[in-house]
Nucleic acid binder design. Structure first.
Length: 154
DNA sequence: GCCAACGTTGGC
DNA sequence: GCCAACGTTGGC
């Protein structure tokens, strides 16, 4: 059964357009250092799952486009690199602590769907993204929520 | 195992 | 820049 996800990225760091511009339109989703988010990638994501690519901490936060899971989970290389800002001295190659999946471009929306509009949709009121205090950078999304948001951007 | 201190997220 | 929320750390 396919799953649906929302993944946050700060567009100043890595935007949906950046993903499209990658030679293979694919990017390893490195740098996640939260256990819940890691577990979603490691345990629950399957290649082909669709993703709402969300822009956070920017002028107009919201869903920028559609991506998909492009690999199984594997160890995040940046945890082993002392020069990386994501280096984790407690991680070893024998027992990696952090995992990621590759994310690839799936399709554009006709227009981005701003957070402000998501909040106006009664059917989305229970979305985890919209719950108070939510800070997780990776969230599961219901099929109906996913389809409604895609419709809003179409 | 508790919990205070601290750091981070992310909208506004 | 502010602040609410919440995860992590570390002393005890």
């Amino acid at each position: 059964m396919a799953n649906y996800w929302l993944m946050k990225s700060e567009p100043d760091v890595f935007s949906f357009d950046d993903l499209k511009k990658r030679p293979k339109k694919t990017e390893p989703w490195n740098g996640v250092r939260n256990y819940q988010a890691r577990n979603f990638m490691r345990d629950d994501m399957r290649p082909g799952d669709l993703i709402l690519f969300y822009h956070s901490s920017c002028d107009i936060p919201g869903v920028a486009g559609i991506a998909k899971v492009a690999s199984k989970a594997y160890a995040d290389e940046t945890q082993f690199d002392p020069k990386s800002e994501y280096f984790d001295p407690k991680a070893t190659r024998e027992t990696p602590r952090w995992f990621l999946v590759d994310v690839s471009f799936e399709k554009d929306l006709k227009r981005p769907v701003p957070l402000e509009e998501l909040k106006e949709e009664p059917a989305l009121a229970t979305m985890r993204l919209l719950q108070r205090g939510n800070r997780l950078s990776i969230l599961p999304v219901d099929k109906k929520e996913f389809e409604l948001i895609v419709a809003l951007g179409s």
